[in-house]
Simulated scan of single mutants.
Amino acid sequence: MARVAFLGLGVMGGPMAGHLADDGHAVTVYNRTASKASDWVAAHGGTSGDTPRAASEGAEIVLACVGNDADLRAVCLGEDGAFAGMGDGTLFVDHTTVSAEVTRELAEAAAARGIGYVDAPVSGGQAGAENGQLVIMCGGAEADYARAEPVMAAYAKLSRRMGDVGAGQLTKMVNQICIAGLLQGLSEGLAFAQKAGLDGAAVVDVIQGGAAGSWQMVNRHKTMLAGEFDHGFAVNWMRKDLAICLAEAENMGVPLPGTALIDQFYKDVQIMGGGRWDTSSLIARLAAFG
């Protein structure tokens, strides 16, 4: 068992840190809203720190799951940042979905202090975090990943090293590109089925076992048909992720015309007031905009 710190106790980080505690790790937590850290400690034990630095002092491995590039920089850098509290030979594991640029920047800052760095974005959403069934795509040195993997196993059904630092974030970009396309196709298919007078649920029962089947189809078709979007991964966060994908693709000279279009469709959903709706709400956009 390890002495670990976990920074960020949102809908993903809170359950992930809880699984670490359940596995017997000595966990110290930090959250920008201190009351969340107090509530977590009351529920799971362990301790909390007033700053990322305070939470990270004495930890062998520090893990983070925050919002975006700026949030990650804020918890890592500066006098009160995690790196300032971490010793030589410790390891930082980032579960946030951020740009490959900030990942490489922070990995260099960590290396200058003798700290290992693994970028480890996750897929599986809130349910995956709560059930300990996340998929984790990682970038970093082989030795650093080998140290991180048994700790991450507390909340992962699968983790894999994809290459050096940044490879995890690049793999997560592929994941988000594919999800966007799948959800747009599923939205159009279900809308077509309804307009044709078919029973949408019956249609899915027939086709989900064939070539059209996907996790999104199996797990989201009923709520999509019912117009229920108060669960899962929010549109606001998906747009943040797609902006990262599109910027990286532009840097690489890789065209993503479909992804760029679907990103604009998600913008329409935001205009409709659905920024906090689940990403499957693309079907609501079809009803509103055609």
Rank of each mutant, 00 (worst) to 15 (best):
P121L: 03
D199V: 08
A64D: 04
V151R: 00
G181V: 08
G197A: 02
A153L: 00
A109R: 12
E105V: 01
A37D: 01
K36Y: 02
G163K: 04
G10T: 00
E108G: 10
A247L: 11
S123I: 03
V93T: 01
V102D: 04
W277V: 06
W237I: 04
A82T: 02
K222C: 13
R161V: 02
G273S: 07
A247D: 06
L190A: 07
I179R: 13
A120P: 01
A54H: 09
V174G: 08
V11G: 14
Y266H: 01
C76W: 08
L246I: 09
G132R: 05
G89M: 04
V122H: 02
G18M: 02
D71T: 14
R147W: 07
A156I: 04
D144Y: 10
G275F: 07
A226E: 06
L246P: 00
A127P: 14
D230K: 05
A129N: 05
L134S: 06
N175C: 01
Q184S: 15
A43T: 09
E188W: 06
A21T: 10
P255Q: 03
G132H: 06
D39M: 06
R239F: 08
D144E: 12
G67I: 09
M272Q: 10
A127E: 13
A5P: 00
W277Q: 07
G200P: 13
Q176G: 03
L170D: 11
D164L: 13
A26Q: 09
W40S: 00
M16P: 00
G210K: 05
E188G: 10
V165R: 01
A191P: 05
E142F: 07
M1T: 09
L246R: 08
A180I: 01
D263N: 14
M137Y: 03
M217Q: 08
H19A: 04
V269N: 13
P15C: 02
T279Y: 14
G85V: 11
A288G: 08
M1D: 04
D205Y: 12
G87H: 14
A167N: 01
A100P: 14
E142I: 09
A196G: 12
I179W: 09
F6D: 00
V41T: 12
G274W: 04
Q169S: 15
R160Q: 14
A84C: 05
S35N: 15
V165I: 06
D22E: 13
G13N: 02
S281G: 07
S35G: 12
A100E: 13
A247W: 06
G132Q: 03
G58T: 07
T223A: 13
N219G: 12
G232W: 09
G189P: 11
V27K: 00
M272W: 10
V122E: 02
A110F: 05
T47H: 11
A54N: 11
I262F: 07
G45I: 01
Y145N: 07
D88W: 15
E248D: 11
G275Q: 05
S38H: 15
S48M: 13
G116T: 08
G8E: 02
R113D: 05
G168I: 00
R104A: 15
L77S: 06
H221G: 08
R3A: 11
S281H: 02
F92N: 01
A17Q: 04
L77C: 05
M16H: 02
L134E: 00
D69V: 10
M272F: 05
